[in-house]
Every structure is written in C-alpha cells, then in structure tokens.
Design a protein around this nucleic acid. Structure first.
Lengths: 248, 248
DNA sequence: TCGAAACCTGCAATAAAATGCAATAAATTT
DNA sequence: AAATTTATTGCATTTTATTGCAGGTTTCGA
C-alpha cells in the first residue's frame, strides 16, 4: 500500500463521513496508528483535512461557516462600514456571500429602506429582523463549499433583472489578472451578477490585494468601487485608482 | 465521539435554538455534564458561543434566559427520527421550514443519497456538510416571520417540477378543517408544494393536534402520512387513521 | 434566605500523541 | 549491479489530552 494511495482513501472517508478515527483507519488500512497519525498530520499541513485528537475532520465540518470568521474580523468590520455608506434609500442591490457581506448587512441602519437580492441564505437570514429591507433570495443549486446558490437557475434569473449596485467579496484581485476566484460555479454566477448591475463594488481585505486565484471573474475596468480596510490614500491602492476605480 | 465533533454538533444546536442547556447536551451526546461544561468553556474562549450559567447562547443572539424555559426539542426529535425512515435512496424531496424540519435534515444518515428541494435557507445550510445530498434552494421573497421563501416566484417554480415526497410541518391540523396555517403567503406556497408532490407527509407535535389556524392549507384526504411524537396506536390519532392517513 | 442545581478544582484512569530509534523499503548515485 | 542515501514504517517510551468523579463552592430562583 502506497502512502499516496492511503491518503486518497483517507480523503474519501473524510468526505463521506466528515470524520475519521485514527484507530479505525489503522485497522482498515492495515497499518499502525502511528502511520495514520503521520498521514493525518501531513494532510493537515497540506490543508486537506483538519487533524484533531483522536482522528481528523473535514475542513467544512470543523469550521462551521458562521463562526469561522473570527479571522480578520476587524478588517471586515471596517470594510462593511464603508460599504454601507454607498447604499442609499430605495436602491435595488445584489449581493454575493461571504463573511464580510454578512457583517455588512448586519450593520445596515434600521432606517434604511432598500431591496436586496442575494444568492446567500446567510445574508437573507441576517436581514430577517430588518424592518424596512425587502429580501429576495435567489434560488438554485446550493454550493456546499461557499454556501451560496449557483448554477444555471441563478444565472438565468439574473438575466431578467437590472440592479443598481452589485456587492461582491473576493479572495483575489490584482492589477494583472483583475478579480479572480477559485471555484468555477461561483465565477459563472459572479459574472452574471456583474453583467446585470449598473455598478460593481468589490470588497477585499488588504492581505488579499495583489493576489490571484485560478479563474478570472472580471477586469479591473468593470469595477466601480474598491472597498478595503486600508485608508484610500494608502500607497498599495493607488495603482487601482489609476484604473478609474473609486477607492473606499 | 471526537471532542471537536462534539463542538461542531453543539454549534449546530446553538445556531438552531439560540440556546442550549448543558444537561440536554450531556444526554444527547452521551457524555458527562462536566465534559459539556469544559466544551462550552473552550468554545466560549474561542468566541464561538457565549457560555452562561446552565448552558450557552449563540453569540449573535444572547438574551438572558431562565431555567424555566426549556425548549421542547424532544418531541421534535422523535418526529424527525420517524420522518427519516420514510426517505429512501434516490428520492427527490421537497421540504418546508421550521425547527422540526431542520432537526430532521440534520439527522439524515451520511450514507443517504437524495435530492432535496427546499424553501428554507436554514434547511439548506444544515445540509451543507452532508456528503451525498444535493440541495436545491428555491428562491423568492424571503419571509421574515417564517424564514422561508414565498411568493409567485416560488409557486411558479414549483409548477415546473414533480417531487416524490413533500414534507411539511404545521401549526394546525384538525378533523374538521384539515391542515391550517396563519400566514397567507405561506399557505399559498404550501398549496403549490402539495400540488407538485406525489405524497405528502405532515409533521405535527402532539399539542398542535386538533387545533386550527385561520387559513386552510389542504384537506386531510391529501395527506399520505402523519408524523407525530405520539405512538401511532394512540387514541387521539385513530380518527386520522380513518381518513386513510398512514400514521407514524 | 434557603435548597437545589450548576459550577469549579484536583485527581486518577484511560487513550492518544510525540519522540527517538531501528529495521526495512525505495530511490539515487556510482 | 552495488553502494549510498533517503523515506517509510513499527515499536518502546515519555508526554500530553480527555474524561468522569469526588469534594467543596457559587449561583439561581422562589
């Protein structure tokens, strides 16, 4: 039994059950628990699973989305705060998902009246106690990774409507590649979202600036506003300003 | 049971009910209350929940609570458990919202493969870590009261598809009025859901049996299965059995 | 204020992990 | 092909983690 072979079997197990016990794996794969532990540690290093005492968990299981966002929470709050200033009474807005977005809608003033279309169930739920905002959840296949709706149902639906403003979070933005993402389904939806909106605001924490993912979402020229946790006068941002992007 | 696994389960409970009691968790997860307390303390440290005397609260929603208000999840668990036994591999299922429903999908065995359409964002989210179930969230206007999607978008969409089974919770069911509800938007959606499904399973806790709300959802004759927390042989249920309803 | 319930602390039993080491298996070089 | 290096594995030992329990203390709600 090759090590790689073992690893792929372990991944399968983890994906299927969301958890594995070292002892079980040792028995199944007919190696010592020490070997399994070493395997799990390597796979944890590689980010494939999360090693815990006694075994391992799938990443999605270990970090229940809602609270994984202690990460860079301050930055996201700052961004959310700036984003809100762009929203005016009566606007029809389209939003993606992500912790920053959830943070943002949670901070919307109770006196603001607007219509928000979203592909994110969490965004909708967050708005459940807002008195004046009408929420339309755009349905489709639910992507378990990103916890938003994707697929042809979503893109087809988006074709029929025009929005004032589209708010998107991103994991990659750079001068050379524009806005990029790692999941093809998401990218297709984001492209539709951008196409259907008059203006596009991209929200990005500073550390993701000038980094790229695999798949292109859009060019810099399509962005109206770039919202980061940095000061708009920050050196790093000036190159984006030259692309006709309004900085916040 | 892995410690982190327990933590994940606890977070789910907290998100679902906004609060948990240590004693309940100890029973459910089959560990001592001391262990639960240690878990809750750690999770509080990590910022995932808020520990309070007697249990824990969700971070986003921590109001003080008394010992007196214990949520009656037991009945709902029983119902959920019975409902699951109706679901077979490969089925295409439609579900409404409500805590019982969320409880149910959370308990679905990881080896079950099925397609679940739902109007409830919470149901979709609850299924995010299920390896084999395809989730389609049906979009539309998000109803803030009931936390599900309603409106013409939903009913229109439902017209196009046929489902094997529809699962609905209800607040009112009686011999004279059939299934009833208090929210017109919801009722319209429920009617569509029933029309699009071959079979209808209604889930109802015992105390709601033989009670009526304002607006009619459907006749008893349209119900295939009635799932309660009572024993199917219970006296109260026999009248329903005479209506050709299968009792669970 | 009182009694019950929940809490905390330290302790012991058990289980899992880390570490160092030797044996074997693969890969690489000569 | 032989020799050398490197990687992998299992085992023994030590260290750490997890858990339940006993006890004394605090908190809660009536």
């Amino acid at each position: 039994m090759l090590k790689k072979e073992r690893h792929s079997l372990i991944i399968k197990q983890v994906n299927l059950h969301n958890k594995v016990l070292s002892a079980d794996l040792a028995l199944q794969l007919n190696v010592s628990e020490d070997t399994i532990r070493r395997d799990l540690n390597e796979m944890d290093e590689a980010g494939e699973i999360v090693k815990v005492h006694g075994g391992a968990l799938s990443r999605s299981y270990h970090y229940p989305f809602k609270y994984s966002d202690v990460y860079a929470a301050d930055a996201k709050k700052k961004i959310a705060h700036k984003a809100i200033s762009l929203i005016k009474d009566g606007m029809v807005i389209l939003t993606g998902g992500g912790t920053t977005m959830i943070e943002m809608v949670g901070m919307l003033p109770k006196t603001l009246s607007a219509t928000i279309f979203t592909i994110s169930p969490l965004v909708a739920l967050q708005l459940a106690d807002h008195p004046l905002i009408t929420v339309i959840l755009i349905g489709g296949q639910f992507s378990k990774n990103s916890q938003v709706c994707v697929g042809p149902q979503v893109t087809g639906y988006l074709n029929e409507i025009r929005f004032d403003f589209c708010f998107l979070g991103t994991n990659g933005i750079s001068l050379s590649d524009g806005v990029t993402d790692s999941d093809l389904d998401i990218v297709q939806v984001k492209k539709s979202m951008i196409r259907s909106s008059n203006k596009l605001a991209v929200m990005c924490i500073a550390e993701k600036l000038n980094s790229s993912q695999r798949i292109r979402v859009c060019e810099l020229s399509q962005i109206s506003c770039l919202i980061t946790d940095l000061d708009p006068t920050d050196q790093i941002l000036q190159a984006y300003s030259r692309e006709n992007i309004q900085l916040y």
